[in-house]
């Protein structure tokens, strides 16, 4: 009769260990779908530019969380680890978001694959990247200090495609402005949370 005195039924506690670039979006999905038993812990989004460090950092965070949660789910794609993240997850017994990167799972794996070569010369923005455009793209690529590097990065690109998660006129206009700054054409596709939502709902 112990369970009775413990109050409301105990839900299995799940941790999502995710890329900081997904924090806002994961919290939004958890709130909207009332997934109260799931907690979120993030690793710095800046690991993006040092993908070889992702597997090691995910591994140590997984080990720290061990025993404190029923299950840990990893909020990363492959993210340029070339299969190394998957090797860690197989060893540690954790699953991750489907697909190679966030642009693919926001679009939905099938839709992303279906676009094939059409997006070859497209640079994607998400809500996160629009908000962080100055820090991650302009400063991150050193375009603030060295605007002449624009071509070294983007001469083979034609279009910026903004894959939006929420419909927000300010973000939309910022995204358009970002495309202008890179000297690229602009396209908007509202994709929402794509496969992220289904993945979280299934936990």
């Amino acid at each position: 009769m112990l369970a009775q005195s413990a109050g409301p039924p105990i839900q299995p506690r799940i941790l999502i260990l995710a890329c900081g670039a997904l924090a806002r979006e994961i919290l939004a999905v958890l709130a909207a779908d009332q997934l109260d038993h799931i907690e979120l812990q993030c690793l710095p989004a800046s690991l993006h530019n040092r993908p070889h460090e992702i597997p090691g950092q995910v591994r140590s965070a997984l080990r720290q969380a061990r025993g404190r949660y029923e299950r840990v789910f990893v909020g990363y794609g492959d993210c340029g680890t070339g299969g190394q993240l998957d090797a860690v997850l197989a060893e540690e017994g954790a699953a991750r978001l489907p697909g190679p990167h966030c642009y693919a799972f926001y679009s939905g794996a099938e839709q992303f694959a279906a676009r094939g070569d059409q997006d070859m010369r497209t640079f994607y923005l998400t809500d996160f990247l629009v908000r962080q455009f100055d820090v991650l793209v302009i400063e991150g690529l050193g375009l603030d200090r060295h605007p002449e590097l624009r071509d070294a990065y983007f001469q083979n690109y034609r279009t910026v495609a903004y894959l939006s998660q929420i419909e927000d006129p300010i973000l939309l206009s910022d995204a358009r402005h970002a495309a202008d700054r890179l000297g690229l054409a602009f396209e908007h596709r509202h994709v929402g949370y794509g496969d992220l939502e289904a993945a979280l709902a299934g936990l």
């Binding site: 530019n49 690529l141 050193g142 375009l143 200090r145 060295h146 002449e148 590097l149 070294a152």
Partner: peptide, 11 residues
């Protein structure tokens, strides 16, 4: 050094 610096050197 990071990518922007390497690109400047390469140029």
């Amino acid at each position: 050094l990071f990518v922007p610096e390497v690109l400047m050197s390469a140029n």
